[in-house]
Amino acid sequence: MTSGVVLPLPFTGRWLVQNSPARRVPSHGTDLLGSTYAIDFVGVGPGRATADRVDWRTVLATEPNERFFGFGRPVLAPVGGEVVASHDGEADHAARRGVSAFPYLWTQAARARQGPAALAGNHVGIALPGGRAFVFLVHLRQGSVRVQVGERVRLDDVVGLCGSSGNSTQPHVHLQVNDGLDVTRSQGVPVTFRDFREEPRRGPGLDRRQGLPADGSAVERLG
C-alpha cells in the first residue's frame, strides 16, 4: 500500500472534525470503498455551532441546508494535479440532526447497491504527483463542481462547494486518499495535514505543523 500523504486542509475558515482516524481505524467503521482513513469536516460558525439555530425541526424533522454554516463554502484542491474524477447532478439531501436521521441511515444499504456515486454524491478526485495516490473530495453541493476529468488544477483552486449530496445527513466535506482510482478495488491511504490550528474539546488550542486532528476538535488553516 502507498505510504501516507501530507496535505493542507481543503478549505478556509473554521471546521469541526468528525470521524477522524485519530479516534479509530477504520474511521467510518468500514474498509469498503477505500474509506479506511477517511475524515469528515463540518463547517462551524461562532463557537462550535454547525447551524445558525436549534428549534423543533432540529429534533423532529429535516432542516434546510441553508441553516448550516458550511453549506456553500468553497472546497479547495489540497494538491496540484490532474482531475481524475468529477461527478455532479446529485441532489443535496435535507439535513437531519434529530430522530429523522435514523430512518435515513437505515437506507444506506439501498444507496450502496446503486454504486459509489450514490454514496459519494457530487465529488472530485485529483491525482497526487506521480499518480501514486488519489485524493477524493466528497458530498459537494449540486451544481457546484467546477472541474472536469483531464483538467489540471493548482493547489487551492476552488473545485466545488460544500454540500450534502450522497450519503450525508448534513452539509460537510468528506476527504479520503486511495492507492487506486477505482474505489471499489483500491485501499485507503493514511493522511495527515500540515499548517493548521487545532482547538480541542478541552484545553488550549495549538498550532500544528503536521498531524491528524482529534475527533471533535475545531481546525483552521494557518497562513
Rank of each mutant, 00 (worst) to 15 (best):
V83K: 04
P78C: 13
G81V: 04
V191K: 01
G216I: 13
L161R: 00
V54R: 05
L161D: 02
G80Q: 05
A61P: 01
A94E: 13
R48C: 04
G13E: 08
V219L: 07
R113W: 13
A22V: 06
T62H: 13
D215T: 10
L181V: 09
D157C: 05
S86W: 07
F193G: 01
G205W: 12
G143C: 10
T30Y: 11
G160I: 03
A94R: 13
G188Q: 02
G80N: 10
A95Y: 03
L206G: 06
V153W: 07
G180I: 02
R97K: 08
G125S: 08
T12H: 15
G166R: 03
R113T: 14
N122F: 07
T62N: 08
L9T: 02
L137I: 01
V145N: 04
D40Y: 09
S100A: 12
V177S: 00
L212S: 01
L206R: 15
R111Y: 10
T192N: 12
P21K: 05
H87Y: 14
R194P: 01
V25P: 04
P204T: 12
H93P: 01
G13R: 08
L128R: 05
T12K: 15
H28Y: 05
S186P: 07
G223L: 11
V173R: 01
L9H: 00
G47F: 15
F11G: 01
L9V: 07
V75T: 02
P171L: 09
P171M: 11
R48P: 00
D215C: 02
N122S: 11
Q176G: 03
A117M: 11
G29A: 15
R146E: 00
D52L: 14
V124M: 00
A118D: 13
A118R: 09
L222R: 13
A110Q: 15
G180W: 01
T12R: 15
T50S: 14
G166I: 03
F134P: 00
E82K: 14
R24A: 15
H139A: 06
G130T: 12
P21Q: 08
R97D: 07
S164K: 02
D195F: 03
R96E: 06
D92V: 11
P46V: 10
S35T: 10
A112W: 04
V149E: 12
F69D: 02
P171G: 10
E199Q: 14
R111L: 13
R208G: 05
P129G: 09
V147G: 01
G166F: 02
G216F: 06
